[in-house]
Design a protein around this nucleic acid. Structure first.
Length: 443
RNA sequence: GGAGAGAUGGCAGAGUGGUCGAAUGCGCCGGUUUUGAAAACCGGAGUGGGGGCAACCUCACCGGGGGUUCGAAUCCCUCUCUCUCCGCCA
């Protein structure tokens, strides 16, 4: 949710921002109109309520006097009848206001964040701007296999039986595959908690509608979510642990000196992938359920852009330690997510496709989520509460990291070398073979 | 799944339908006193919306939503959450 000033005096900025994003500018005039009539109704209603409050008070005084004074009793009676009419008027205005306010809120919740000034203009992924690049893609002396072929040959991935269990876009990790996935999770969490200062959290994997609204998945993107719960209870499976982590502080005022919060969590993520039929249907790239280690920061506004750079570096560090080449893209206005004011995507090199693929997305949402979720902090002991800034980033998508390791570290025999930082997590596990200082995944 | 109890300001905890936005205690902030501190005493402190250049005015908020009433923290309905006991369970 944007600052209400964008629906009133700063409506021009909103219009410009939405235009940059290629969003529907028709929204702007509608919300501005609603904002205006909302304020008018509030003024009318409040004036009447003030009148009624005063009358009620006077009636109270008259009633107190009425015991000894019959004239006061009659006067009270007369005033009550009179005031009842004000009540009817208030009721009518409140009903109108509820209608206008409902539409105002509903529309307001569907308007995306305004891009930061530093975000390049563009229509889609092709207009993203490369910020930096790390590592050199390996030269293969043989034709590298893709992770599907490799994984099935090694017996560590089974897409067919997963289909039997749950349908398309699900995967079974088996044996050394499951161990490698788990090792990656452990490695990422250890790095972020021990080196980067994040606090580890295991959040609920199902959340309520308020939480989904707080981070911006609802109301606009309900079809992207898996809904669950019971007949009398609605819950959603989280599409990312950004949702529970950011919502931890929903409706709270954080006391002075507590910020910043750095949080990290491993969680499965569930996405319906509606609208992506036929896209990335092969392999692990786009699944209904995948594993992710998430980074979330809640910070003071002045620091949020520095924190975004640091968070992006924290995610990049994972790839550097694993020796996986990547490039970091500053997303253009047309490719950014709903809640973000600025986003970096980190893309890892996948040799089988000779391409960089997204493995992390790090965003500063500024106060967009904080306003929806009412995440505030008190700058100093007696100070007024302010909205915090929230950031989130993948640190990293585990399944895609798994793909990158398989594809980048394969040899001509179809084995996969395990990068050194993972050794301590898989040492001695079945399906791995030590050879000098190297460990190979052999299935 | 069954039975019961509860939800009030940072915390604890009062509150016959009528100056209750809310007593009191603790905590917090400012001051007096003190060499300094503590204690004591005095004073101040909620959040959001709307109007106003401002001082300030006004509305709403006692778990959420709805209702009764001239008037609701207080009465009614409903939902959510918490706690206790029984049952079941990783």
């Amino acid at each position: 949710m944007l600052d209400p000033k964008y629906f009133g005096e700063a409506v021009g900025e909103l219009e410009a921002g939405l235009k940059r994003r290629n969003a529907d500018p028709a929204l702007v005039s509608r919300i501005a109109e609603l904002s205006k009539s909302r304020k008018a109704l509030i003024m009318q209603g409040d004036a009447l309520k003030a009148k009624r409050n005063q009358a009620s008070q006077e009636i109270g005084a008259l009633k107190a006097k009425a015991k000894s004074d019959p004239a006061a009793a009659a006067e009270a009676e007369r005033r009550m009848v009179e005031t009842r009419a004000i009540g009817d008027e208030i009721k009518a205005i409140d009903a109108k206001l509820a209608e206008v306010d409902g539409e105002f809120t509903n529309l307001g919740l569907r308007i995306p964040n305004i891009p930061h000034a530093s975000v390049p203009n563009g229509a889609g992924a092709d207009d993203n701007v490369e910020a930096r690049r790390w590592g050199t893609p390996r030269q293969f002396s043989f034709q590298p296999l893709d992770h599907v072929t490799l994984g099935e040959k090694l017996g560590i991935l089974d897409f067919e039986r997963a289909g039997k269990l749950s349908g398309a876009r699900f995967t079974l990790y088996l044996g050394a595959g499951a161990t490698l996935e788990r090792a990656l999770i452990q490695f990422m969490l250890d790095l972020h908690t021990r080196q980067h200062g994040y606090r580890e959290v295991i959040p609920p994997f199902m959340v309520n509608r308020e939480s989904m609204t707080g981070t911006g998945q609802l109301p606009k993107f309900e079809e992207d979510l898996f809904k669950t719960g019971t007949a009398d209870r609605e819950l959603f499976l989280i599409p990312t642990s950004e949702v529970p982590l950011t919502n931890i502080y929903r409706d709270e005022i954080i006391e002075p000196g507590k910020l910043p919060f750095y949080l990290t969590a491993y969680s499965p993520c569930f996405r319906s992938e509606a609208g992506s039929y036929g896209k990335d249907t092969r392999g692990l790239i786009r699944q209904h359920q995948f594993q992710k280690v998430e980074l979330v920061k809640i910070v003071e506004p002045e620091r949020s852009y520095d924190e975004l750079e640091k968070m992006t570096a924290n995610a990049e560090k994972v790839l550097e330690l694993l020796g996986l080449p990547y490039r970091t893209m500053a997303l253009c206005t047309g490719d950014m997510g709903f809640s973000a004011a600025k986003t970096y995507d980190i893309e890892v090199w996948l040799p089988a496709q000779s391409t960089y693929r997204e493995i992390s997305s790090c965003s500063n949402c500024e106060d967009f989520q904080a306003r929806r979720a009412q995440i505030r902090y008190r700058p100093e002991a007696q100070g007024k509460p302010r909205l915090a800034h929230t950031l989130n980033g993948s640190g990293l998508a585990v399944g895609r990291t798994f793909i990158a390791i398989l594809e980048n570290y394969q040899d001509e025999k179809g084995r996969v070398e395990i990068p050194e930082p993972l050794h301590r997590y898989i040492e001695g596990a079945p399906g791995f073979v030590r050879e000098g200082s190297k460990i190979w995944l052999t299935g």
